[in-house]
Design a protein around this nucleic acid. Structure first.
Lengths: 231, 231
DNA sequence: TCTGAAGTTTAAGAAATGTAAAGGCCAGTG
DNA sequence: CACTGGCCTTTACATTTCTTAAACTTCAGA
């Protein structure tokens, strides 16, 4: 498993990323200051560093420079919007990529994978949760092609709907929390008046149809989350 | 130790690369003009050449052409932003790889290693490098000849279309970001209203045709990029 | 039973992506 | 040197997908 270090003073963002990266099977650690981060890179054995250019005490570029003085570990920089200058500088100093804020966790994950791919460091050839196929009752999903069928006929789900279903079915029989689901599927936490996930749930349920007795395949656990009933 | 010659008029870039390549245990020399570079290739015993297409006196392509008239030394071309034509021409003239600017030094190193790896394999097995051919389901591509076939019949892709397909297939099963794809394939970042990539995607999909059940081989991940489905 | 919080639903709006057709560029050709 | 054909880009509109808005329903606890 790849171990990733996040150096960013924004604790909230760090938590968010940690959660999301965890769901993508990455191990993560965080440092909220340049000096601390640098120390951790020196001592720890990380596979990749995510580094914010805007750091309170020590500039991100300096941190990168310091890192490069003793290590060739891949670094992805997080830059503020339109920070062209920093970007060029970052690349010249040896960052592997950069990502302008704001970005979605999905984008970041795509970059991380791209970096590992470029480096030929593809450990991703090992276990591939991607290639999973799941079947519960008459519903069948295949992650590799991102399709879902009921009795063999395509359900024509959108990406988000498929993603919800995939997450729920993988955890069939146990409750998946709302916030966790939103994070994985929409790439963000839900504010209290964000009804987006509810709408997707509604649409998904309609497409899935009911099981016998008009019972729903997806059960709502009020105040917690959702549960896919195991047949 | 491998000895690399860098032919580029940008002295700053040369220094940067030299430093970086040194840290990767490569010996380097530089030439800031086409004629000088050509002479050095002729006299020196280099293992690989990094060649900028944009050179003051003598065009990089001409330099490549001249080199090829007497040597089969591996050449990696550095192409300027959006220099599609030059790139294609470069490949046709026998460059081993190309890298659109701006690129990170790490990326260049990855390419260099890839080239050496390919050559190593080729010598060992006396066969064309495997990594340049990819086959997924009934689609087969060969980078060396820039051809793609479905069930043996030529798909007649344009260079951009082929390049998109190549990139997606190399990353089959994982998402390739729109921006990354645009950068590699078109040599530029997409502005908000640049629909060029979409059009190419559309054309490519039409030529590729659908897999069973009208399912697309290339899946759109809204807001992130594209995914070639691994069957 | 009343009430507020949580969840659902439908519809409208916004954003991203798809695609046909026209436009422009450039190399090859007569 | 105009002509032609291939290819990429732009334009303009269509379509799909996600989000927001707002009204409605359900549920738990007072």
């Amino acid at each position: 498993m790849k171990h990733i270090l996040i150096i960013d003073d924004d604790t909230e963002l760090c938590e968010l990323l940690q959660e999301y990266l965890a769901s993508e099977k990455f191990a993560t650690s965080t440092a909220h200051g340049g000096a601390t981060g640098l120390e951790m890179v020196r001592n720890g054995s990380f596979d990749l560093v995510i580094l914010d250019v805007m750091l309170p005490e020590m500039n991100g570029l300096e941190v990168l420079k310091s890192i490069r003085s003793f290590s060739k570990i891949p670094v992805i920089m997080l830059t503020a919007k339109g920070d062209e200058v920093d970007r060029v500088l970052g690349l010249e100093l040896g960052s592997d990529d950069y990502l302008p804020k704001p970005f979605s966790p999905r984008e970041l994950v795509a970059r991380i994978k791209a970096v590992f791919r470029r480096l030929g460091n593809a450990e991703e050839h090992g276990v591939r949760p991607e290639s999973l196929k799941i079947e519960i009752a008459d519903i069948f999903i295949e992650s590799a092609t991102r399709t879902a069928t009921r009795n063999g006929s395509d359900l024509a789900l959108t990406e988000v709907e498929f993603s919800i279903l995939e997450n729920l079915m993988r955890a069939a029989g146990t409750v998946v929390e709302r916030q966790e689901l939103a994070l994985k599927v929409l790439g963000r936490r839900l504010s209290y008046d964000d009804r987006s996930l509810d709408v997707h749930m509604s649409n998904l349920r309609r497409k899935l149809g009911t099981i016998a007795d008009d019972k729903d395949r997806i059960k709502t656990i009020r105040g917690v989350g959702y549960l896919y009933v195991r047949s």
